[in-house]
Design a protein around this nucleic acid. Structure first.
Lengths: 212, 212
DNA sequence: GTATAATGCGAACATGTGTTCGTGTCAATC
DNA sequence: GATTGACACGAACACATGTTCGCATTATAC
């Protein structure tokens, strides 16, 4: 894909700065006048190009129906993440969709830098108990997990141990037909478990702790 | 000021939710149809009321020229916090203003819930080394501190130990003329130090960890 | 040169969208 | 019962705004 022309870049910049100043997008004529373009059709033409290149999205036949792709999301450079329950050693991990309407999930905002893929498939769990201190995670912390059922070696994941009926948060290493679950704390010994006893529930993405 | 009528409240709610879904405000007719109102003039009437009560701002003669007052500001329910340096056992804590222009500080967004006083006097430090594992804080974590030189008993604070020339992060208890610095990890022993050897640098507010 | 694609122009056109006006309903007040 | 104010209605109006079309201009390739 070729680079944007100077004019197209200018249009994009102007839309962006206009959105900074107002809560609504500019019209084609706003853009036209700002950039000293003689015709609305020129703006329209360039907007079409920008749209094809996925820089913007347009809602046809709608005034000011210009959206900058990614801006809505990045509006706050943050992502809202639902804290859908708690995580403790002795109980399985609840999953998104598991709590229905009845209770309102707590929501925390996570800086986009901390949220891969714009927060897709992320959810939060409040840690209960001290079973994860070996991962430097304490009671009351919120862990942000990415929903996935497989993982790479070396990733820190939340797993459910079938036989033990236990949730734990450890580094995952598949070694032959068994899994080594390594605590973050190097002074602690790893757990070994048959691969089919280990259910990966999600990958640890982030930890947030609020002190008092 | 009297309460908003049911319809006015509904309109306000709808505008707000519309803005959540789109990057542009609704038209009068959008509102009309959504709320099953039979005439645009009714919407206009109610918008005028909302405007008088300063719930919204309107740009006359401009399509979709509705802005919700305060929304722009609260757009970030987050606070930007500068990460102004790093914190390690063997070196003093840098302070806001200490780095000047020369280097661009990293900035992280912190959910307002996690930031007391709207983030006033808060700054971030990246943790280097493993000297704070007893506080469940690992290498690479970012600690958010609130600048203060005094503290209450039981608060977790960053202190500089004059004699030892060492920074540490512990719970603070003033006992007579000496200070007990208690690690978070209850299995570890506290440090005792003369009160005048302990410089409180800031109070621990939050810890953020991003895993890879 | 000629062809072609990208870009720009200006003017009409069609529709989206805010505004206004005359009127109607209903409850509270006198 | 008459008056008043809050709220609602529907239709017409005026302007704001996106769209389209025929026609230049320019650069690049053949």
């Amino acid at each position: 894909m070729r680079k944007l022309s100077e004019r197209q870049q200018a249009i994009l910049d102007y839309i962006s700065s206009f959105l900074d100043d107002n809560d609504y997008p500019p019209t084609i004529r706003d853009i036209q006048h700002e950039l000293g373009i003689s015709s609305t059709s020129v703006v329209d033409y360039n907007l079409k190009v920008l749209e094809e290149r996925l820089c913007i999205r347009r809602n046809r036949n709608i005034s000011r129906g210009i959206e900058i792709v990614g801006r809505n999301a990045s509006r706050g450079a943050t992502v809202e993440i639902q804290v859908i329950g708690s995580i403790a050693a002795g109980q399985p991990i609840p999953f998104p969709g598991q709590l229905e309407g009845s209770e309102q999930a707590e929501v925390i905002e996570l800086s986009r830098e901390l949220a891969p893929d714009g927060g897709a498939n992320l959810f939060g769990l409040r840690v209960r108990g001290h079973s994860m201190v070996d991962a430097l995670i304490g009671d009351g912390d919120i862990v942000i997990l990415k929903r996935q059922e497989t993982c790479e070696n070396g990733e820190t994941v939340a797993v459910w141990l079938e036989a033990e009926e236990e949730t734990t948060l450890k580094k995952f290493y598949l070694e032959g037909d068994q899994v080594r679950l390594q605590p973050q704390n190097v002074t602690m010994d790893p757990i070994y478990s048959p691969a089919d006893n280990v259910r990966v529930q999600g990958k640890l993405v982030s930890v947030v702790r609020s002190v008092n």
